[in-house]
Amino acid sequence: MDEHELHVFIDIVSQYFSRQTGREPEIGTPYLGEPAALPVHDLTGVIGISGVRKGCVYFTAPKDMLRNLLLQGGEMDVSDDNLSDMAGEIANTISGNARKHFGGDFLISVPVVVAGCPDSIQMPRTVKAYILPLRWHKHEAVLVVSLQ
């Protein structure tokens, strides 16, 4: 992955929050993470990538942030099922939107949502994982992109 591709994901994340909530997130400085010690919050939406690129994209956030996002979108049901759905849908939307840059052979899986346990997230051990920290309404979340 190069710097330009990293910016693709930064732009998509910014646009997602702006369009859905009317408020841009603050994007922190991206950094490289160790595959064995990547950040996770309460709920993580994971998308497997195959085709022209292989790897994984995940969005992880605390429940408070996901609850706030649901309410901002007019969804009053803030049950755990809907919080998980929100984490998966954000990961799905960000990965799907990336096809505008990577093309139609950038294949994305349906989202898998993981609660807590980072051991359930299978990341390629030999590929660098870029971590994009973000803050929205005082909530902190992370997008992790690991692509061969």
Binding site: N92, T93, G96, N97, R99, G103, G104, F106
Partner: peptide, 12 residues
């Protein structure tokens, strides 16, 4: 109504 934002998917 999809997140897949590439033109080829829309055309398909």
């Amino acid at each position: 109504v999809s997140a897949l934002a590439d033109k080829s998917t829309a055309i398909q």
